[in-house]
């Protein structure tokens, strides 16, 4: 496996140097591995997220006006630590409190929980929204619960717009929770992912097989299936999501995200198949993102996310945003 690396253990640190060089509007704290808005808006609820690296542009690509105030970068596929989250909260909170946006993985949950305790002890009011939208995890009673995937992007955008408008912590938390509860995702992998520090794929996936319901950390998925046509794969993703939540009778925001190793032409091909299936089943798509938004290093594959939106969510979705990976209305 060939990768752009100077030193395997320094991949994250070196990538952050690039983020700082490319985006002077962001403040990069190299010691704490926090990417933040250089000039936090006074009196605004601070939105803080973070997670393991390897999912770029999530989360640092979504830091900026209209979205996140700070993102904590963990090692590849590893949660960041409480001291990083506390540093982020101290850097960007301006007295209106902080919302932690946490993807439901044991490490992220435990570390953000410790961080919330530390931040509260420093006098920063913290509320947390947990994203657990992956319908591939069927038995959430006997597992760590559903994983947080694509809906995270929707939470960060919509709650970010609400905070930018001046909503208080309770109101930002409420809309973030509504988005989290109404989003569902399902992913499929054509190949495994290769961690820079390991140098070989996380799991073996033969040429003629795919992982249905894959997560974003190189862990295997719900089932292994024979490789089939794009339309049949789209059918499986759409059916799993629609079986889990009602997406009819409301405007829907859709995202077809690549997992890092799939060309855009294939993502558009997949979205074409998804769009016609959604139309057949009476789902009205109001807004769409197609591209790499939540990835898993170099994994080939895609993840479909649908959000059952409402007028307020749509208005906040359309509000101006100016980040490295999402930018409109400015």
């Amino acid at each position: 496996m060939k990768k752009f690396i100077d030193a395997p253990s320094e991949v994250l640190a070196d990538a952050l140097k690039g983020v700082a060089a490319a985006h002077p509007e962001l403040a990069v704290d190299f010691a704490d591995r926090v990417v933040a808005r250089a000039n936090p808006k006074p009196g605004k609820v601070a939105l803080i997220s973070g997670g393991g690296s390897g999912h770029e542009p999530l989360h640092s690509g979504f830091v900026g006006p209209g979205m996140l105030d700070a993102a904590c970068a963990g090692e590849v596929f590893t949660s960041p630590t409480p001291d990083q989250m506390l540093a982020a909260a101290q850097a960007v909170s301006t007295g209106a409190g902080a919302l932690f946006i946490v993807k439901n993985y044991t490490g992220d949950v435990l570390n953000f929980e410790m961080a919330a305790e530390l931040a509260e002890a420093e006098g920063i009011a913290v509320k947390t929204v947990l994203v657990a939208d992956d319908v591939a995890v069927e038995d959430s009673t006997w597992t760590a619960g559903r994983r947080g995937v694509g809906t995270t992007v929707f939470v960060e955008k919509i709650a970010g717009a609400a905070a930018e408008e001046g909503a208080d912590l309770d109101a930002v938390h409420a809309v973030a929770t509504r988005v989290s509860e109404n989003g569902r995702s399902m992913g499929v992998a054509l190949t495994s992912a290769t961690l820079p520090s390991v140098g070989k794929p996380s799991f073996d996936l033969p040429e003629d097989e795919i992982e249905m319901g894959v997560g974003i950390h190189g862990e295997p998925g719900r089932t292994r299936a024979p490789l089939t046509s794009a339309s049949e794969i789209a059918e499986t993703l759409v059916s799993a999501i629609l079986a889990d939540h009602d997406f009819t009778g409301a405007p829907v925001i859709a995202m077809l995200s690549g997992l890092g190793g799939t060309p855009l032409i294939e993502l558009y091909l997949m979205y074409g198949a998804v769009a016609s299936l959604l139309e057949q089943r009476g789902v009205t798509v109001a807004r769409v993102l197609v591209g790499d938004y939540i990835t898993s290093l170099d994994m080939a594959g895609c993840s479909l996310t649908l959000l059952r939106a409402d007028d307020e969510m749509l208005r906040l979705w359309d509000a101006p945003v100016s980040t490295a990976a999402l930018r409109w209305g400015v």
């Binding site: 963990g74 949660s79 960041p80 630590t81 409480p82 990083q84 490490g107 435990l110 570390n111 929980e113």
Partner: peptide
Amino acid sequence: LVSTVGGASGSLYG
């Protein structure tokens, strides 16, 4: 351990 391991393991060993 908490500040360098990360993940669930860091928080739990910590």
